[in-house]
Design a binder for these strands. Structure first.
Ligand SMILES: [Mn+2]
Ligand SMILES: [Mn+2]
Ligand SMILES: [Mn+2]
Ligand SMILES: [Mn+2]
Lengths: 218, 218
DNA sequence: AAAAAAGTTTAGACATGTCTAAAAATTTAG
DNA sequence: CTAAATTTTTAGACATGTCTAAACTTTTTT
């Protein structure tokens, strides 16, 4: 049996390895989970014993096939629940992450299958994040983070890569949601901040915000 | 913060005290939860410290107002989730209890409120068990356990007071579900077993089964 | 190529929740 | 009303997951 804590570690490792390459460091995991590096070291040994990760002391960690499969399944459940909460229970997209953090640990394959069917097998969650299929495949999109676009490019917001409330509330304030058309006006080389046009309004946002917006160019 | 284990103890105490009166014994709780009497003693001390129960060593335990409120809330969540699983995800009534045992511990008042609204504020769950309201009131019914009826009485099954799979599967085999019309034909004094008529079929069931069937007489 | 800085692991402690075995209290019988 | 049986509590242990402080590697600077 895999515990709730173990599931969270596997999910964190997968999440980090998707945004970087090579082995995942102890500190990165500690940062992601909000725990101490010492706790992470302890847990990595346990996950290694269970053949869920490949771990060499001081050299970082990576998921085994088995570990990857568990992690992907947790993400699948997280995003299916988020979809249910927004589509059926009328939650706001900024309010679902915390609840889904709990729901993702409910153990019942039957439940996940039926929830998926109930939702009509959605490919993306309310944040535009891809929902892994039952067999672990993750739908891909040809989108680019807004901060990588060149000046003058038009595009549409297809998803965000962060789903915490303060970030999403800020986007809502900027009138940005999934589907919003954006034009990149100007990139400031000093701090990589950018000017954008939304509808007829001009806005200025930091690189930190821009990098979490996935754009499909027109 | 109240933990998952604490919630289960409170629920068990409430559940036992509804089917008996006076203080709840350590052994009864151990039996209900499937743990040792020693563990129960340990936990009762902790619940006492948190003002969730009134506990005197060797003299049994009862819920405080606060404890009762938590316990009722857990039962509310359990039964709302069971309703969702059966009504919306097409689960069989025998398959939902185990999953609801997990879902009942999800912490989000918002979620419960919205789920309740989504389900149209149901008064009873798929087993005919009453769903406590948000403010802790439990709908009552004027029903009688089948084993308390007198011979020759007709009635309709309004609910069951046990929702474990083996019991519910047996009922399904007997063609008994919520709404089924039953006539009590004969009570055997030797073992309190009874003969009943369902549609045009005569069946014989034990007292153990009969006592878990709630009947509304015609 | 040391020395300093940064990152990681170990040691020892603590909280929660569980168990078995032994001790103590209560209830039931004789 | 004592003695036996039952119930309950305590004692001591263990598993999980966390922490801080100290020790140990690895990387970066000088
Ligand atoms: Mn999320
Ligand atoms: Mn999401
Ligand atoms: Mn149930
Ligand atoms: Mn039920």
């Amino acid at each position: 049996m895999i515990t709730l804590a173990e599931e969270n570690y596997l999910k964190a490792i997968l999440s980090i390895s998707l945004n970087s390459d090579g082995k995942v460091s102890t500190n990165a995991i500690a940062g992601e989970i909000g725990t101490s590096a010492a706790s992470v070291s302890d847990m990595l040994k346990k996950l290694q014993d269970k053949k869920l990760v490949k771990y060499k002391k001081y050299k970082g960690v990576s998921l085994t096939k088995k570990g990857n499969s568990f992690a992907t399944s947790v993400i699948r459940k997280h995003r299916l629940w988020e979809t249910f909460l927004v589509n059926n229970l009328n939650f706001d997209w900024g309010e679902v992450h915390y609840v889904a953090e709990q729901l993702e640990h409910i153990k019942s394959e039957e439940l996940v299958d039926r929830l998926d069917a109930f939702l009509d097998c959605p490919k993306f969650d309310p944040h535009g994040e891809p929902i892994p299929t039952k067999d672990g495949k993750i739908p891909t999109t040809n989108t680019i983070p807004l901060n990588k676009l060149s000046e003058g490019t038009n595009g549409k917001v297809m998803g965000v890569t962060l789903d915490e409330k303060p970030f999403l509330d800020y986007l809502t304030k900027l009138n940005i949601s999934i589907g919003t058309e954006i034009k990149l006006l100007e990139k400031i080389s000093f701090d990589q901040s950018i000017s954008i046009k939304i509808g007829n309004t001009k806005q200025h946002i930091s690189n930190d915000v821009a990098k979490h917006l996935l754009i499909k160019t027109n």
